[in-house]
Simulated assay, not measured.
Amino acid sequence: MFDPAEVRSHLIEAARARQVFTYGALLGTLGHAFTRPLMRQLCKVLDALDENGRACGEPGLAVLVVRQSDGLPGQGWFVSRTGVYDDLPLEWEGPEARRFTEARQAEAFDYWKAP
């Protein structure tokens, strides 16, 4: 349903612009209205992109996709990164989660900065 190369391209553009997407905005950019089933499919693509990126030494891009309500990735993002990050917060909401998210976003912004 989603072309991983297209999703990756949008996320790299966002990183270069030091911006994030909400789940709904990214789905809209990809030509879809927000639905939970589509969001779950998109999250699978985001997880695969991050896995492939880690294998190449790249920082994650999925952290650039956040909930509209609080600007943080969803619970699934945090849970699926268990074992990936040594400093992963125990809670996926609140100030500790925000600091962690912002640090990971900064890594992506810095890595993909425009030449």
Rank of each mutant, 00 (worst) to 15 (best):
F2V: 05
P4S: 07
P4G: 01
A5L: 13
A5Y: 12
V7I: 07
V7S: 05
S9A: 08
S9M: 04
H10Q: 14
H10R: 15
L11E: 03
I12Y: 04
E13M: 14
E13K: 15
A14D: 06
A14H: 06
A15Q: 07
A17H: 13
A17N: 12
R18L: 11
Q19F: 00
V20N: 06
V20A: 09
V20P: 00
F21C: 04
F21P: 01
G24F: 00
T29D: 06
L30A: 14
L30Y: 13
L30S: 14
G31D: 08
G31Y: 04
H32V: 02
H32M: 09
H32Y: 07
A33N: 08
F34N: 01
T35W: 08
P37R: 02
P37N: 00
R40Q: 10
R40G: 05
R40C: 05
Q41P: 00
Q41I: 02
Q41Y: 10
C43S: 15
K44A: 09
V45M: 09
V45H: 01
V45D: 03
V45R: 00
V45S: 03
V45Q: 02
L46K: 12
L46D: 10
L46M: 12
A48Q: 13
L49W: 10
L49V: 11
D50P: 02
E51A: 07
E51G: 08
E51W: 10
G53M: 05
G53E: 11
R54E: 11
R54V: 07
A55V: 07
A55C: 05
A55G: 02
G57P: 01
E58P: 00
P59Y: 10
A62K: 15
V65E: 10
V66G: 06
Q68W: 14
Q68I: 12
Q68E: 15
S69D: 13
D70S: 03
G71D: 01
L72W: 04
P73F: 02
P73D: 03
G74E: 13
Q75T: 12
G76W: 08
G76A: 14
W77V: 07
F78T: 03
S80K: 12
S80D: 10
S80V: 05
R81M: 15
G83E: 08
V84G: 07
D86R: 14
D87T: 02
D87P: 08
P89S: 03
P89W: 01
P89Y: 02
L90Y: 00
L90H: 07
E91L: 13
W92E: 12
P95D: 04
E96H: 05
A97I: 01
A97E: 01
R98S: 10
R98F: 11
T101H: 09
E102L: 12
E102K: 09
A103P: 01
A103K: 10
R104N: 00
R104P: 00
Q105W: 14
A106Y: 12
A106T: 12
E107P: 05
E107R: 10
E107I: 06
A108D: 03
F109I: 05
D110E: 11
D110I: 01
Y111D: 03
Y111N: 06
A114I: 11
A114M: 12
A114T: 07
A114V: 06
P115Q: 05
P115G: 11
